[in-house]
């Protein structure tokens, strides 16, 4: 495991460097779109800690992403706090939010858990979209102040890449640790974990909180790179989009979520440049993938040489047997 981990870590760093080096290839005018994709990739990776590894299908991950972004925006735009204060505030309050929503959401199981997270994010969405004085309502907040060194597309891209890489490395460490092993064991066979003396609820709780905090950190990145927030970031559409990205890329492959984000976001951005039918093209693409790769594209790459180098599964063995929690929903 250790050896594997080192190779993976190196790969991640190389991938991060490659993403940073995109600035040499991508025209300057397209860079913000690329930066946005990197931010979403980090968010999808944090979501997959829940989906692929804990078997918790969260549909409301936008809650944390939006929360992180909104705390920074409110702090900066409404109260004129400096960015570092905003970030500290965002992350510390995200811990509280993650703990509270974990307590609520984890009461429900399987798909009901997903729907409960969806309901939570929708309640938060309506709250944000209707509190005009605090959040700017549906117009959102524009004009987040960043320090001078951060006020360029280049710097923002590097920050997004840096944070996303760090988040991925952290996730890799978590998954390679005994905790990661328990998490997957729990996903596949909760009774066994319990009978061996583990506390399934505690483990899931910790995973949920970590994923929530990491998503909030990506939300901070979104606030910094966009210098603006708007409420759809919190709504279920963001949560559902991230879910589809993870599913499309492959939830049982470590880097699957990134693959899903890159494919979907690049397609949409490109199509939008030329046509108003991005929904049609993205929709057909997703349908095609559903038929060709119901388990996501990542796993189908695993057989190939490319796939092995791309960073095969953290848990190849489990990929063959879909977790039990999902079977219950699909008799």
């Amino acid at each position: 495991m250790e050896h594997l981990s080192w190779r993976r870590a190196l790969l991640l760093v190389l991938l991060g460097l490659a993403a940073a080096a995109l600035v040499l290839v991508v025209p300057e005018s397209r860079l913000p779109a690329v930066t946005r994709t990197v931010m979403l990739a980090g968010a999808a990776m944090s979501l997959n800690l829940l989906i692929g590894n804990a078997g918790l299908v969260s549909m409301g991950h936008g809650l944390f992403l939006g929360f992180g972004a909104y705390v920074v925006a409110i702090g900066s735009v409404k109260h004129g706090l400096s960015l570092s204060w905003c970030i500290a505030l965002a992350i510390s309050s995200a811990v509280v939010l993650a703990v509270v929503s974990a307590i609520i959401a984890l009461r429900a199981r399987a798909l009901f858990f997903g729907l409960l997270t969806l309901a939570l994010s929708q309640v938060a969405f309506v709250f944000v979209a209707r509190n005009y004085a605090l959040t700017g309502g549906d117009d959102g907040l524009v004009g987040i102040n960043v320090p001078k060194w951060l006020d360029s597309d280049l710097a923002q891209h590097f920050v997004a890449v840096g944070v996303t890489t760090a988040v991925c490395l952290l996730l890799l460490m978590i998954l390679a640790s005994p905790f990661g092993a328990i998490l997957r064991a729990l996903r596949d066979n909760p009774e066994r974990v319990a009978s061996l003396g583990g506390h399934p609820k505690h483990i899931e709780f910790i995973a949920f909180v970590i994923a929530g905090i990491l998503a909030a950190i990506m939300g901070v990145v979104a606030a910094i790179t966009d210098q603006a927030v708007e409420p759809t970031l919190i709504s279920w559409t963001t949560g559902a989009t991230l879910l589809v990205m993870v599913a499309l890329g492959g939830r049982f492959t470590f880097l699957g979520p990134i693959l899903g984000v890159v494919i979907l976001e690049t397609t949409r951005t490109l199509v939008q440049t030329y046509s108003e039918h991005s929904d049609l093209v993205v929709g057909l693409l997703v349908m095609g993938c559903a038929l060709a790769f119901p388990e996501g594209i990542g796993p189908s790459l695993q057989g190939s040489r490319l796939g092995r180098w791309f960073g095969g599964p953290v848990h190849m063995a489990e990929a063959a047997t879909p977790p039990s929690t999902e079977r219950t929903a699909a008799p």
């Binding site: 929904d279 038929l291 119901p294």
Partner: peptide, 26 residues
């Protein structure tokens, strides 16, 4: 997509939602 459990269905129906919406708008 039934074979693969809910994941194929989620993807398929999400894609369908987008496609039908775009076609109706057009």
């Amino acid at each position: 997509v039934y074979v693969g459990g809910i994941w194929g269905q989620l993807l398929l129906s999400f894609g369908l939602l987008l496609v039908v919406n775009d076609l109706v708008r057009t």
